[in-house]
Design a protein around this nucleic acid. Structure first.
Lengths: 184, 184, 184, 184
DNA sequence: TATGAATGAGGATTCATTCAT
DNA sequence: GATGAATGAATCCTCATTCAT
């Protein structure tokens, strides 16, 4: 594992535990077992380190959603498959989830960066747009609908991380919750 | 307006804008037009100031929900009324909303404080519990259901604050979204 | 007990425990069960409070030494009696002793105050001067001799306070030590 | 001269002049011509800086006493030689002397540190213990005797620093004072 | 006299960043 | 690239003192 990775990993760990401003660079360098100056060879400054972490995290999230088995035959099944894929990603990557939740809306990340990373939601927006047009889903503004549906995954993930357990049945119930919410 | 109030208000303003660690006490004292030391007469330290703000904010939220017109005749109508009451509170109190969202899960607020403030959700938990027992709502664990329903209000409020506008119709659509999600 | 006394007592207690600068006026006011402002009705400021304590302490010490039974018949006995009187005062008034030791040489007390309180040593200086002239004691400069003899009492008191015990025999041995040191 | 030394030296100068709490770290950094933060690279905090100074000072004192010419042939001569060595150290190192006097019993230095530095007295304790066993000295508890004898050096050093002069003859008289005090 | 809330200058400490090695 | 000592501005907090009641 190269130093860049080590630094990013340490940053994720520490930032989810203490928050951005309560995580000194010295703490990151210690956890990553790297000299303080080394961080600055890989990241111009602390803000840029954070943005890099944000970009990486969003990328991982995007890739996770592409793992959903979407075959186009049964809209409801595809919808739930995507929902569950994202849920599982959030469930399996607790720190990345927390980081994205806490920092997505924080003033630490520049708007441009946030905008740029919206691309990862595009496939979903498209999928939900299709569902609306085909009459499977409520005809609400697609951006709004996307936000609402995503919100259900986030809520489910929060519950999961609070309880450290959630049966398969329960997960399917929550997917069903999300489906009934959105369906026409 | 007494100094304690002035300090809390300044803190809410600044903390939602810059975040906890990026808001120096000096900035709060300047905004509140109070000497730095005065803050420490009212709040032992910065952390406790934050906790006080959290407690106050949760209290306001609790009071807002009690304004919902619940007459017990039509469960769906009552459900939507509560949903909309909370939504309106979040919509009208943008900063309080942001603050609660940012710090609800942060490590800055002690678990005990968080637990104690859960009391404000109790009426809703009861209301939803009733709905489950009477067969109006899905029979999911009531705590989980509460979290999921609350999540829909949060998502709606986020959309509202991003767009700075949301028609009455749209709001009713989102309440409908939340109702269909939860109903049996 | 009037407030002035209460304040002085609290100051002595706290200052010996924490030191002058580590004893805030607020701590004194709390311990004395008096409002912060009240201290300033009795003492112009912190420095003057300290000086008042110094003056009172030196006065007590002076009075203690006058309790020695000096009958002028046996010089050695009188010498030891004075020595033991002072030792007992230091032993019985642990805090006053510590305070005088720690602050006598500190920069906190003005030279004039210190000079003025030297008067309490005058009887001893006279007594030792007599001893020198009569050939009972070494013919060393009387101020120096006084300092050296006083040093033996201080050392003995420190030992006492460290050990919290010192038999009568041991005390007499130390008085004997002090006598042999000084005698011609 | 490395920064650590510069800091310790500046601390000694300032602390003896103003006292611990009246010596801000900023003042030390200025006097040592070092950035404020640099102090914290070498000493965890102000207290630990003080402890380090204490340890160094005691070490110097210990080394000074080992310079005494002790040949074991004449106990009285050896005793006086040690006494004078320590006196000269205290006389030549006015600030170290003041510092040790002021902080030896203060609450700023932890008991463990104090205990550990007692090792520097061990050679003297041994020397006096021998003197007691061989009948040269009073049979007083050796720790008590050590303290009393040390007290005579301290008193002599105080006199020296007050007067800024003390003839060789006077010094020998004081060593004689200390010898007669302790001898059997 | 007595009170204690309010003040704000001052102090300990932290931490992002630099730079000589 | 990698190191980590050094920097010093910025931050939290303290505390002597004042003053309206």
């Amino acid at each position: 594992m190269n130093k860049r990775e080590l630094i990013l990993e340490a940053t994720l760990d520490l930032i989810t535990e203490h928050g951005f401003h309560a995580t000194p660079m010295s703490m990151i360098s210690k956890k990553a077992k790297v000299a303080a100056g080394t961080i600055y060879h890989h990241f111009e400054n602390k803000e840029i380190l954070l943005e890099a972490l944000y970009t990486e995290s969003k990328g991982k999230m995007g890739r996770a959603m592409q793992l959903a088995t979407v075959n186009g035959e049964n809209y409801e099944a595809d919808y739930k498959s995507i929902w569950i894929s994202l849920f599982i990603f959030y469930a399996d990557n607790s720190k990345t989830f927390q980081f994205l939740e806490q920092y997505a809306q924080s003033p630490f990340i520049r708007k441009e960066t946030k905008e740029e990373q919206r691309k990862h939601y595009q496939p979903i927006i498209d999928f939900l747009g299709q569902g609306i047009r085909k009459g499977y889903l409520k005809s609400i503004d697609v951006e709004i609908l996307t936000e609402m549906v995503h919100g259900t995954v986030v809520s489910a993930a929060k519950i999961f991380h609070q309880q450290k357990e959630l049966s398969k049945i329960a997960i399917n119930e929550l997917a069903q919750f999300a489906w009934q919410a959105a369906k026409a």
